[in-house]
Simulated scan of single mutants.
Amino acid sequence: MKIIDCHHHYWDPRVNPHPWLTDRPMIPFRYGDYSAICRPWLPEDHARAAAGWDLVASITMEGEWSPADPLGEARWMARLAQEQGTPAAHVGQIWLDRDDCAKVLDGYATLPLTRSVRHKPRSTPRPGMGPGGLADPAYLAGVAALARTPLMFDLQCPWWHLADLARLREVAPDLPVIVNHTGLPADRSPDALVGWRAALEQAAGMGTVYLKISGLGLPGRPWRLEDNRDIIRTAIDIFGPDRAMFGSNFPVDGLCGSFDTIFSGFDAATRDYGAAERAALFHGTAARVYGLDPV
């Protein structure tokens, strides 16, 4: 099976500014202690992790480079792609509610490797605690500016804020949105999963919305198919193979399992799907959405 890893990182905190990887004390993190990933993760590391899989292309995600230089990581990634042939596309950093948003968007026009941008909106710790940053007028003004460019929008927020996509659609009805990390279903209690499924169904009905099935690790336990199979299949049922894609979230999800464990889990969870459906999930959807050469 050819695969495109639709969501992972490259970073080198020895020479580049990633405060969360270098500063101490470490920040609160959903997987707990992340000291094991506070080191360089470069193309050779990713290739080594993916050994045994036919990894034909990679899409890198912004890795919280210093917000003082929002274009710096994308420029570094473009140099990396020129020198090493990877990544095939990049999702850049943006701060939609800052005064420099338009200037940064103009900067991305000179960096064609960057196909999408991400700014994680402010979120609440639990459902029912009010709207998150996705409903903020300043944030939405940045979304409207983004919609006037060729870029897409990668959205990472807990599932209980996906309803605010309706506000986004008011200012950017045609902006392609890629929901990251399966909507973050970290709470696997029955009530939470009912809410997660309803949120994904609502998001899937809002036009050009896609889903990255990734980031499924659970704190304090290894990545296991028995924990994630139903999540994977429910997500595919809702979005369909033509709007869903698989990503490793490496090196972050390396805290939960190996690359082989995670992609073997995707493989096992979809073994009874048709060949065309599996081809879409493993590489076709990512190639089409992010404008990569056919594989």
Rank of each mutant, 00 (worst) to 15 (best):
A275H: 10
D267M: 10
W196T: 10
C38F: 13
M61V: 01
A50I: 02
G284F: 14
G85F: 02
W160A: 02
F29W: 14
V295I: 15
D5V: 04
F259I: 00
S123Y: 05
D33T: 11
A279P: 07
G254V: 01
D164Q: 10
H119C: 06
I236V: 07
P241F: 00
G291M: 10
G72A: 08
V171W: 04
A203D: 14
V177W: 03
A78S: 15
L225R: 13
Y108L: 01
A141N: 14
A145H: 05
R79C: 07
R126V: 09
D69C: 10
A51M: 03
D164N: 05
I262Q: 09
G274N: 13
G195A: 04
A109I: 06
T270D: 04
I238V: 14
G207E: 05
T22I: 04
H181E: 06
G85N: 07
R221H: 04
L281K: 04
R197C: 06
F246S: 12
V171D: 02
D136S: 10
I27R: 14
G63H: 00
D164W: 00
G52P: 05
F153T: 07
A47C: 09
R288W: 02
T285E: 09
G32P: 11
A47M: 11
P125S: 08
A203G: 12
W65Q: 02
T270K: 10
T182H: 04
I232L: 03
P19S: 11
A144F: 08
A78R: 05
P112T: 12
P40S: 07
D97V: 01
V295E: 12
F246H: 10
G133N: 01
G207D: 13
L140G: 03
F263V: 01
G284Y: 08
D136C: 08
G133L: 03
A276W: 13
H119W: 05
M1Y: 05
G291W: 13
A268N: 06
L71N: 00
L165I: 09
D267H: 14
G52R: 15
F29C: 05
A50T: 14
R197Q: 13
G215T: 08
A49W: 07
A235E: 00
F29L: 04
D154S: 08
N249H: 15
I232K: 00
P185R: 02
D69T: 13
V104S: 00
K212N: 08
M152H: 00
G85M: 08
D293G: 14
D237S: 13
V177F: 06
D54A: 15
A276V: 12
L175G: 00
V209G: 00
H7R: 10
Y210L: 02
Q202V: 09
P190N: 12
G220P: 06
P67T: 15
R75Y: 06
L80F: 15
D227A: 10
A68N: 09
R126E: 15
G63Y: 04
A163P: 01
R233Q: 15
A276L: 12
A147D: 15
P25C: 03
I238A: 07
G247D: 01
N16W: 15
A138H: 04
A36E: 03
P251L: 11
A269T: 02
K120H: 13
Q156V: 07
A36Y: 00
D99G: 06
L162K: 11
W95P: 10
F259E: 00
A49H: 06
G128C: 02
L193N: 09
R233N: 12
N249T: 09
P70L: 14
F263N: 01
R115K: 13
D253G: 06
